[in-house]
């Protein structure tokens, strides 16, 4: 198992290297280069040349990639364009945790990410938790009562839930709970239409919760639909198995048979499914965050795409891909750990 994990980690490094080359060339192949977004509307040519030197964009692409990856503080660069390498580079490179500076705010990219990440982790973990708390009972009950009217409605709900575009659902919820429904005592909108908390007031739990409700409902519906359907079919595969028949024959109640004996096996694929969805806790949901003006990673990325803030875009993509690969590995290991039938050489 250790050898397997080690080999997978090695593959991960290779895969990330490959992806970073592709994403880096993609971003830097954009015409006009990323600099046009930074230099303003009608930049003077000298200004562009100076900025290009400053960001190392005057170098050939492979050199740029090298500087991006390992930094340029070990070599000297030409800072004033006179052809003489006069000063030491200042970049440390991605491998040492330096993702460069945001073109827009001129702050370190990692600082930008750190300021947004907690908000996304907060929103997405609540969303996933709510999804599981609803999806598991829903899936279990409709599997146990297969073809009942409850199952029919749960299945229909699941099909509908997977088909609703989340940004549209968000807008509809704002129409209903912000524009139409009013708080009967104060006459204010029942729920806020966006943001993580009200401006100007201090921390208040009820205010935080009020801001959380609509984004969580918007984001969780698709996941409830998807998880509950998965749990239902996973349980349906297990329910007719002999070991459950023998458990029943030993006189165990149906409740214990389903909730203890069947569910513990049915949840194995779910655990790996959740592990595969964990990267969203980092990347966030661009559409939901946009609709609700939620100051998280998704909106950060969206804004960066509008501004063509390539260092930021690249950093989010690379870290996002690293999360995805890592979670894939975790899913595989968990699967082997939970299901003794699975063995890796």
């Amino acid at each position: 198992m250790t050898a397997y994990i080690f080999r997978r980690l090695l593959q991960t490094v290779g895969l990330l290297f490959f992806l970073s080359v592709i994403l880096f060339s993609l971003v830097n192949a954009a015409p006009g280069g990323p600099i046009t977004a930074y230099a303003g509307r009608r930049p003077r040519p000298e200004k562009i040349a100076q900025l290009k030197r400053q960001f190392g964009l005057d170098q050939p692409l492979p050199t740029q990639y090298l500087y991006w990856l390992v930094g340029n503080d070990w070599t000297t660069i030409d800072s004033n364009g006179d052809g003489i390498k006069d000063s030491a580079g200042l970049r440390k490179g991605v491998l040492r945790g330096d993702f460069g500076f945001s073109y827009r705010t001129r702050k370190p990219v990692l600082e930008e990410i750190q300021s947004r990440l907690p908000n996304t982790v907060y929103l997405m973990s609540v969303t996933m938790l709510v999804a599981l708390l609803i999806a598991i009972p829903l899936g279990v009950y409709s599997a146990v009562k297969q073809y009942s009217s409850f199952d029919f409605f749960a299945t229909t709900f699941s099909f509908a839930g997977q088909a609703i575009p989340e940004f549209w659902l968000g807008l509809i919820l704002i129409i209903v709970f912000y524009a139409w429904l009013k708080n009967p005592w104060t006459g204010e909108p029942l729920l806020p239409s966006g943001g993580i908390s009200s401006l100007g007031s201090g921390f208040s739990l009820s205010d935080r919760l009020a801001h959380l409700i609509l984004p969580v409902v918007t984001g969780t519906l698709g996941w409830i639909a998807w998880y509950s359907r998965f749990i239902r079919s996973s349980l349906l595969e297990i329910l007719p198995l002999n070991y459950l028949r023998s458990a029943r024959a030993r006189g165990l109640t149906e409740r214990i048979v389903v909730l203890k004996h069947a569910l513990s096996n049915a949840l194995i694929p779910i655990v790996t499914l959740i592990a595969l969805d964990l990267p969203y806790i980092f990347t966030g949901a661009v559409l939901t965050e946009t609709v609700f003006a939620w100051p998280g990673m998704g909106r950060l990325y969206y804004q960066a795409a509008i501004d063509r803030d390539y260092p930021l875009l690249l950093a989010v993509l690379i870290i996002g891909a690293a999360f995805i690969i890592l979670c894939n590995l975790i899913a595989d290991i968990l699967y082997a750990y939970l299901d003794p039938q699975v063995r890796y050489e």
Binding site: L15, L19, L23, L26, V27, P279, T283, V286, Y301, Y302, A305, L313, V316, L317, G320, A321, I324, I325, N328
Partner: peptide, 10 residues
């Protein structure tokens, strides 16, 4: 292993 919607935006 790419976050596909983000790459789509890019």
């Amino acid at each position: 292993s790419l976050p596909s919607f983000l790459v789509l935006i890019l």
